[in-house]
């Protein structure tokens, strides 16, 4: 299950996390985000022990989106020790995301 992140909880759940984190930046009106959303949820379940998987609605949480310069959605950022280490823009097959995440484990 993916965490619902907000501007307020981002620092605590992502930056301070000891596990690698992937964050899906999305919006309700974005078609491709609805394709990526369930995939991210699945990854969240599969990697629930080893990684943190979160989703952040860019409409309601503009601060984080601005901080990371998110201009395209869906964008998925990969964090390790609070730093962005990888990025994936656009709808891509699950395997692409999984292999990027596995590289961080």
């Amino acid at each position: 299950m993916a965490l619902q992140l907000t501007d307020a909880t981002f620092e605590e759940l992502v930056i301070k996390s000891e596990k690698p984190v992937i964050v899906d930046f999305w919006a309700v009106w974005c078609g491709p985000c609805r394709i990526v959303g369930p995939v991210v949820e699945e990854i969240g379940e599969e990697f629930s022990d080893t990684a943190v998987v979160g989703k952040l609605d860019v409409d309601h949480n503009p601060e984080v989106a601005r901080k990371y310069g998110i201009r395209n959605i869906p964008t998925i950022l990969f964090f390790k020790n609070g730093e962005v280490v990888d990025k994936q823009v656009g709808a891509v097959p699950k395997q692409v995301l999984v292999s990027k995440l596995e590289a961080l484990l």
Binding site: C30, G31, P32, N72, G90
Partner: peptide, 8 residues
């Protein structure tokens, strides 16, 4: 063809 993302 394949709609992949929204960009500002």
């Amino acid at each position: 063809v394949e709609f992949a993302e929204h960009r500002q």
